[in-house]
Computed example of a mutant assay.
Amino acid sequence: MIVNDKNIPSRPAPASTRGIAGWLRENLFSTPGNSVLTFMGLAFLVWAIPPIFQWAVLQADFIGVNKEACTSEGACWVFVSARFQQFMYGFYPDTELWRVNIFFAQMTAVLVWVLWDKMPRRTWGGVWFLTGFPLTSFILLHGGFLGLETVETHKWGGLMLTLVLSLVGMVIALPIGILLALGRRSDMPAVSSFCTVFIEIWRGVPLITILFMASVMLPLFIPGDIELDKLARAMIGISLFEAALIAEVIRGGLQAMPKGQYEAADAMGLSYWQGMRLIIMPQVLKISIPGIVNTFVQLFKDTSLVLIIGLFDLLAVMQAGITDVNWPNISIEAFVFTGFVFWAFCFGMSRYSVALERKLDTGHKS
């Protein structure tokens, strides 16, 4: 009997499973049913894309200052270019727009510093994001300090207001949501009951109702010498509402943790908070990333509801623009532009969460 003691070199994969042909076969033409669906999808794209592209690009008008500049049969993007400043800054004074631009630049730099894993000293970036960035942003946008002119919050609007509400809501809601989730699972009946009641009440009421109540009733529960403007009331309402949603996401992650992880923390002699900080919560946050990001995406879109209390975010500014008699029949272009802006931010958050999941993946896949 002859035994081969040499390694046989690996053979290349069949040509039908490699390259573009292999990808098409695996993803689009793996079965007869998938092949039919693929051809139907291609037929729909061939039917739909050319006229849309022709309307949005080939026959569109891009340059001008008023509706008279739109002379073709395509989209009138002149509306977007003419009101772009209002879409971005709301009713912020023209002479002070440089302050908003610095806010945008600082926000971008800080987010890159915190979220990009190749940046040095990311911990310091996180500390600045939670402390220095909110303070400097408030000084820049509101003024009243260092010789800056005061700009009341009712003049804030557009994309700037949307980002302010979203960032504040995300930063405040996550830690409060974690504490609420831990409190709901607490062995102390008083703490568990309080957190349960809080979560069920806040997440069971529509956000639009919470914003209205925050605007009307919140001043009744604070001392008379403290004055909260509409923006501060909206921030409080949005943050507490999202915290209740985050709490349920985190509670789901806590319940998914094997009991052995808690026992391991106890066996190492760790206190409750040490075990949560070092062993439990890192794993819970990792498996809860999809739910957390989904809640943040919902928060970003829900900021458009602040119109109910008289604040004009990006969507509200757009809706005010299409009611202008000088811009008739412009609603399609306005909604397409606004929808694209919201989609771009939400898609960016979604893709970052996917990248973060891959980075933190430890092989626990369903």
Rank of each mutant, 00 (worst) to 15 (best):
V3N: 07
V3G: 05
V3P: 07
K6T: 12
P12N: 12
P14G: 11
P14F: 11
A15P: 04
G19P: 11
I20M: 12
G22S: 13
R25W: 07
S30L: 11
P32G: 10
S35H: 12
T38C: 14
F39K: 13
F39A: 13
M40K: 00
L42H: 07
A43R: 02
I49T: 01
P51F: 15
P51I: 13
I52S: 12
F53W: 08
W55F: 06
L58G: 08
D61K: 11
D61M: 11
I63E: 14
N66E: 10
E68V: 14
E68A: 15
T71N: 11
A75T: 13
A75D: 07
V80T: 09
S81M: 14
A82H: 05
M88K: 03
F91G: 04
Y92H: 10
E96I: 12
L97Q: 09
R99V: 06
Q106D: 14
A109M: 10
L111P: 08
V114H: 05
R122P: 11
T123V: 12
W124G: 08
F129W: 09
F129Y: 07
L130H: 08
T131A: 13
L140P: 05
G143A: 05
T150N: 11
V151I: 15
T153R: 02
G158T: 06
L159Q: 03
L159M: 01
M160L: 10
M160E: 01
T162K: 03
V164S: 05
L167H: 04
G169P: 02
P175W: 09
I178F: 05
L179G: 09
L180N: 03
G183W: 01
R184G: 06
R185K: 09
S186P: 03
M188R: 15
M188T: 15
P189F: 02
P189V: 10
F198E: 04
F198A: 13
I201R: 14
W202I: 08
I208T: 08
L211H: 01
A214R: 01
S215M: 15
L218D: 04
P219Q: 13
L220A: 09
G224Y: 09
I226A: 08
D229Y: 14
A232M: 14
R233Q: 15
R233E: 15
R233S: 11
A234Q: 03
A243K: 05
A243S: 05
A243V: 02
I250P: 07
G253I: 10
L254M: 09
Q261W: 12
Y262P: 01
A265N: 13
G269R: 00
Q274L: 00
G275M: 02
L278N: 07
I279L: 09
Q283K: 13
V284A: 06
K286I: 07
N294A: 10
N294F: 02
V297P: 01
V297R: 04
D302F: 02
S304M: 00
L305C: 01
V306K: 00
L307N: 01
G310T: 01
F312M: 10
L314K: 00
Q319A: 05
G321V: 00
G321H: 02
P328W: 01
V341Y: 05
F342G: 02
M349P: 00
S350V: 00
L360G: 03
L360F: 04
D361P: 07
T362A: 12
K365V: 08
